[in-house]
Design a protein around this nucleic acid. Structure first.
Length: 465
DNA sequence: CGCCTTTGACCCGCGC
DNA sequence: GCGCGGGTCAAAGGCG
């Protein structure tokens, strides 16, 4: 009877080798325990499909060890029964393994669908609000005129609500320079391939990333081609213009400029949305900029930002400053013309409650997410405050990417931040008035704005610096 | 040779 | 209408 015993041990070994976690604190085998009662139902019900890989199989591993020990000590006793139990366990584990795999796959799909749907909702809201805004301005006059001229339902009413029309209108109004490029791009296949819903908001919104760097530009994983350089007013450092060259016709551009007050700070402003696959090293930044842009526009749609932008005083910026007890700020907002801009400031020094680096590397999303009380604090105060998790030195790329990815990927954070921004802007109208003395003179390039010295471009900030 | 940077010219919107 | 400033174009040259 030695051969069957060895076979069983091999089976048990294979299972334990596949699922073993190596936890020395595994349950101590009780000789008096009934193996039948000990295995089945608990091991199935207790499986955590979303825990660490090896975790769901702990109990099974113990069970198999128990079976293995029993085989070694009493291979002659209940041989068939034990064999049947092993077989059942094996089948059950296989079934659980498959189910676990399917559930994980399903979860990934749901997450992707959720993110995509959320983005589409944000875009739809943006389009709707802008369409209605324009519609209210001119629908009565144009409709009456059209009815008089053609005696038919004016197509302009419907056309005005289409995303493309909104896009063109906004481009001509808000971005004087973009149309030329967009027109040229729209004639290319790439422009046609790109979903207008994807393009729409990201042309308008900009995402700035401020980081300390000695390099001429920040390596964000994409390939860029410099197509221009200008001396911006109010800043002795030239502003460089880059275009994404990873795909022909990619509309993404970025501006790189050093801060006038601190030349070690590099401000990179991204505009547009990639229309091509990105390498892994570039996905974090791209996702961040896209999410931040969507986030920013989401806030504008449900708040007075749109009104602010279209108002005669929209060219003036206002600032909100507030000292949060334990955080410095990495996110600032600009509601100034021509583009709403969100700035991720990665340059501020850390605060004492900053989590340890090893915590950041693994648990940044949780640590970075504002909890309910923090969100409440944000909503109750017209300031967007995010903990600065970076040190005074240039943060490591991994850390930055991790945090950026966390910001971009986590729908809860995006939604929470969007809601906070919306509340801030919506409820901060009076604060705009109260902070008129903080308005930045765009003609002066904002360099005189002592509240936001690192932002030579006019920006409305909700930050502490 | 292809890709990139440089740089002056040009375009365009905006304010006066 | 004019000037200003931001943004883009495109020719020229450098580099590997």
């Amino acid at each position: 009877m030695k051969e069957p015993s060895q076979d069983r041990r091999e089976i048990a070994f294979l299972h334990s080798g596949e699922f073993l976690r190596g936890d020395s604190s595994s349950k101590v085998h009780q000789p008096n325990e009934s193996p039948v009662e000990d295995h089945h139902e608990p091991s199935i019900k207790e499986v955590d499909f979303f825990a660490a890989k090896s975790q769901p199989y702990d109990l099974s591993h113990d069970e198999l060890n128990l079976v293995n020990s029993r085989l070694e000590t009493s291979s002659d006793d209940g041989d068939d029964k034990t064999k049947t139990q092993i077989h059942r366990l094996k089948l059950e584990l296989e079934r659980l393994h498959e189910e676990n795999h399917k559930l994980k796959h399903l979860l990934d799909e749901i997450s992707e669908s959720y993110n995509d749907l959320q983005r589409r909702v944000l875009l739809a809201r943006q389009t709707q609000v802008e369409g209605l805004h324009k519609q209210h301005e001119s629908i009565a006059l144009e409709d009456r005129r059209a009815m008089e001229m053609n005696n038919e339902t004016p197509a302009t009413t419907l056309k005005r609500l289409s995303p493309d029309d909104v896009d063109d209108r906004d481009l001509h109004r808000g971005s004087p320079k973009t149309p030329r490029l967009d027109q040229s791009k729209s004639t290319t296949n790439h422009g046609e391939q790109q979903n207008p819903h994807d393009q729409l908001p990201f042309r308008k919104a900009r995402v700035s990333v401020r980081a300390r760097s000695d390099a001429t530009t920040v390596n964000d994983g994409c390939q860029w081609r410099k197509y221009g350089q200008k001396m911006a007013k109010g800043n002795p450092c030239p502003r460089a213009y880059y275009r994404c060259t990873m795909a022909v016709g990619c509309p993404v551009r970025k501006q790189v400029q050093r801060c006038a007050e601190d030349t070690t700070i590099l401000t990179t402003t991204y505009e547009g949305n990639h229309n091509h696959p990105l390498p892994p090293s570039a996905t974090a930044m791209a996702a961040t900029t896209s999410a931040a842009a969507a986030m920013l526009l989401s806030g504008s749609t449900t708040s007075n930002l749109h009104q602010t932008l279209s108002s005669p005083s929209a060219t003036s910026s206002s600032s909100f400053y507030h000292n949060f007890p334990y955080t410095s700020t990495i996110a600032t907002l600009s509601a100034s013309a021509p583009f709403p801009t969100i700035t991720l400031d990665l340059t501020n020094p850390p605060r004492p409650l900053q989590p340890p680096p090893q915590l950041l590397s693994q648990y940044v999303p949780a640590a970075f997410l504002p909890n309910a009380s923090q969100i409440r604090s944000i909503n109750n105060n017209p300031h967007l405050l995010l903990p600065n998790l970076f040190g005074p030195q240039a943060p490591s790329r991994d850390m930055v990417d991790t945090v950026r990815a966390a910001i971009a990927m986590d729908p809860n954070f995006t939604a929470a931040l969007a809601a906070a921004i919306s509340n801030i802007i919506g409820g901060g109208k009076e604060n705009n008035n109260n902070n008129d003395n903080n308005k930045v003179d765009e003609k002066s390039g904002g360099s005189s704005n002592g509240d936001s010295p690192q932002l030579p471009q006019s920006c409305t900030t909700f930050s502490t610096n």
